[in-house]
């Protein structure tokens, strides 16, 4: 928003245009290097090793190699992607469901022991996940959750609770109290209040938290690496690690597989771009 009068606009605009160009060049140069890996991924997925060696930099016209590479990638990635989508969607949904309930409890009422319970959550922020990983492994073994997608989901849900409850509690506390009181007058119970007031009014923040939880699950590779053993249970994380471990590497195959593994998130991003960017910036302010 510029508060300039019409007469000065033209003069300033010309002066500004000149100043704008170096800024654009600076940003574009950094972005170009930053995005170079993805350009390389895309163009190498069109080639096989021989073609890549002959012409490492420039893209080529799609041909039989492209079809071959993507056929390989499709068959390899599809089962992994299915597992990952199952884990990420289930974990993110459960995560938010439990977090909304708990946040409602903390935000709306001050019950006996509320403070004790709240500090039980806050203390958890001080415990880094790195110290837990070894005993967590043996715990999952005892609970028979090793080599199971449910083990992965349980850990993801538990580790997301603190942050989500923290953000949601702040948000629900800021909702107008009259709404809740009016609902109570009409005889609405806690469930009804959550479904008809909390969820509709905190839609964007729930959406953002859902995306963040989903993304966290999708990107995780340490827990799947520790928990999963059977190839048919592999999520994308472990699957790609094993693909990278192959001795003879066909880079075209591998890059096509990488591209397939990125595709679901890219599609999701296209539809949630605004929410995503606003959510990340707002989440940043809230800390």
């Amino acid at each position: 928003m510029r508060l300039t009068t019409p007469t000065t606009v033209t003069v300033k605009a010309v002066g500004r245009e000149k100043l704008e160009l170096p800024k654009h060049l600076f940003i574009l140069a950094i972005l170009a290097i930053e995005l170079l890996p993805f350009y390389m991924m895309l163009q190498i997925s069109f080639k096989n090793n021989v073609m890549f060696n002959a012409n490492p930099w420039l893209p080529i016209l799609p041909g039989a190699t492209l079809v071959e590479n993507f056929r390989f990638a499709y068959h390899l990635i599809l089962p992994y992607a299915a597992n990952t989508i199952f884990v990420s969607v289930t974990a993110a949904t459960a995560n938010l469901f439990f977090a909304i309930l708990a946040a409602y409890f903390f935000a709306r009422y001050k019950m006996p022991f509320s403070n004790v319970l709240w500090s039980a959550f806050l203390t958890l922020m001080l415990i880094p996940s790195v110290t837990n990983i070894v005993p967590l492994f043996t715990l999952l073994k005892k609970l028979n959750l090793l080599n199971s997608l449910w083990g992965l989901i349980a850990v993801a849900v538990a580790s997301g609770q603190v942050f989500n409850i923290f953000v949601l509690r702040n948000f629900i506390e800021d909702l107008p109290r009259d709404l809740f009181e009016a609902a109570e007058m009409d005889g609405a119970g806690h469930w009804k209040q959550i479904i008809h007031i909390v969820i509709p009014l905190s839609g964007p923040i729930i959406g953002t938290l859902f995306i963040l939880s989903f993304l966290g699950c999708w990107n995780d590779f340490l827990m799947p690496l520790i928990i999963l053993r059977d190839p048919q249970l592999f999520t994308l994380g472990v699957g790609l690690i094993y693909l990278d471990g192959d001795y003879a590497k066909d880079w075209g195959h591998i890059m096509a597989a990488f591209f397939m593994a990125s595709l679901p998130l890219l599609i999701m991003f296209l539809f949630t771009m605004k929410l995503f960017i606003r959510g990340l910036s707002a989440g940043a302010l809230k800390g």
Partner: peptide, 26 residues
């Protein structure tokens, strides 16, 4: 109003089992 506690119990159980127990075990 004891039922209100039911809202926070799932989260509590989750962090008790998958965060506090491993931490103490460590």
């Amino acid at each position: 109003e004891w039922r209100l506690y039911l809202f926070v119990i799932p989260s509590l159980v989750l962090i008790a089992v998958f965060a506090y127990f491993p931490a103490i075990s460590a």
